[in-house]
Write a protein that binds this DNA or RNA. Structure first.
Lengths: 213, 213
DNA sequence: CCGTCCTCCCGCCGATCGGGGGGTGCGCCA
DNA sequence: TGGCGCACCCCCCGATCGGCGGGAGGACGG
């Protein structure tokens, strides 16, 4: 299991330079909120802000921020996608995802190259601690970010996403170029892993976990 | 259709006293964000902040804020519920709901006594304009806040909520003390009104619209 | 007063679901 | 080399879904 922000509380050493933080979110509220939360911390030097993946990559390249907080859904772009662009532009940046409703599995976040996940409902001090921990090189994942979601295979995710659109198994099959029977197997696997009984409940759970948009 | 914030742009007159604003949200990011957005406005006098319905009612009673921005989901409590408590404590307060993912129909918001709805993805200036408009006594509803959701009858909502839990029609029937056939009729009505084909898509849509938690 | 909407009940039917069984081939890792 | 998870295919079957037809009473407003 991942190390958590709480594992090393507030007594973090001043590990060198003050942190430059990049915030990537298209919501003004979040932008201002994080800026206010972090700007007051003495160990933060500057808060950059990007409203798109394009902007984020650009700012990352020019600013080389120590830490980047990336929303899971920025307009049409996905968090992992943007994470990749940031790392391409500035490989040393520690990226963490941040989101309100949605969740992302620790495994999926790591696969995208991220070092953490910060739920938006965390209190200010916890967010600050998390950012500081990221700057210090530690990973920050809340407990239970893993859980059932992580175990879904790529194919199962595909099927789940289409199920959420109301597609029938036959439609999913032709859409993914599969046999209807295969679709049912993937669907059944999804139900088993998410511990639900049918499509409706699966969609409900998936949205809570942030598996579908 | 409701009057929109844009209908009267930035040239709002200084209509008397500077506004006291109450923010009800359990997310720190939102709290700080709104505070920063609004605190810079010359026509705002103070930002109160509550993390629960209890606290909100208390602050409303003692502070009589001109405007209250209430999250749709504050912990276990619902926005409309909290709205009622605020209005009870301070009838002159103009309450608007604010939420990220979820939506609430203009009709439902009005039924709860609210005067507006502010999506969290609005830019700072738009939020500011909305709050100012609320303070001036106007309603603020974005277009398409109405739409299909408003037309759902109470019974249809009941059925929809249970559908989202993965319950079968038979289970819903016994749970609501109805005939399975009646449940199917309500379900069909839900599908028709939400313009979806089946349960899975209905759950997806319902969660996007904020009809189910 | 009549129309409209909501709520509730009945029968019928084809399409779909979800689970059961069987199997193949792939790559990874020990 | 064998195990294991993944992806894919086939069979069958009962339960469930979603829409079709019908009718009933009550509330509310023009």
């Amino acid at each position: 299991m991942a190390s958590t922000a709480d594992s090393t509380p507030a007594e973090l050493t001043h590990d060198g330079p003050r942190l430059r933080v990049l915030i990537v979110d298209d919501h003004d509220v979040v932008h201002w909120g994080l800026r206010l939360m972090l700007g007051r911390q003495p160990w933060v030097r500057g808060c950059l802000h990007a409203r798109s993946g394009e902007e984020a990559a650009d700012l990352a390249r020019r600013g080389s921020p120590h830490v980047a907080l990336v929303d899971l859904f920025v307009g049409e772009e996905s968090g992992p996608e943007i994470c990749g662009r940031i790392l391409e532009a500035s490989p040393s940046t520690r990226v963490a995802f941040i989101s309100g409703a949605g969740r992302i599995s620790a495994a999926a976040a790591r696969a995208a190259g991220a070092r953490g996940f910060v739920p938006k409902d965390w209190p200010a001090d916890r967010v600050a601690t998390a950012v500081r921990a990221l700057g210090a090189g530690r990973s920050v994942f809340p407990e239970a970010t893993d859980a059932p979601a992580a175990s879904l295979s790529p194919r199962e995710r595909d099927v789940l996403e289409l199920i959420a659109t109301g597609a029938t198994n036959a439609e999913i099959a032709s859409s993914l170029h599969l046999s209807p029977h295969t679709v049912k197997e993937h669907a059944s696997a999804v139900y088993r892993k998410l511990d639900v009984r049918n499509r409706a409940e699966a969609v409900q759970r998936a949205q809570r976990l942030g598996l579908v948009g």
